[in-house]
Amino acid sequence: MRQNDGMTLIVKTVTRISVWMILLYGIYIIFHGHLSPGGGFAGGVIIALAFLNVMLAYGRKFTSDWLNIGFLHDLESASATLFLVIGILGISIGGAFLANFITKGELFALLSAGTILPLNIIIGIKVGMSLFLVAWVLAGSKTVKGE
């Protein structure tokens, strides 16, 4: 670990502890999207913020060693594709685009509400990765003077 990159030791220590809690909270929000307020988008934003915290506290170099940016990029595209695949499965099984085609389960149970839970997870991944990568690209861009 490069001690010179990023912010001070205090910030780094707090981040090291808190980042997992933030991630866990994001995952909680995603998984309970069909039961309580929140869902894929809100949870995805929280996940992106966890990664952004690491980037701010430890610097870009450490973060790119810790996370595989290329993999995150593929994950982002793959989640969008997967969303469409579920939508198309809805056409072939449920009769309309994005129609429900799996069991609806018991009301208020975690595994319920048919395809809404998998779709929420996919949206969470998509939003989390997209927001983080946007911030990543913006932070990495060099200012070039135009002619």
Binding site: H73, D74, S77, A78, A80, T81, L84, G87, I88, I91, F97
Partner: peptide, 18 residues
């Protein structure tokens, strides 16, 4: 009807994937 949206959207994300 939905294929007018599905086809280009799928192409856009498949392109960035592969």
């Amino acid at each position: 009807l939905p294929y007018y949206i599905i086809i280009p959207l799928l192409a856009a994300f498949l392109i960035s994937l592969i």
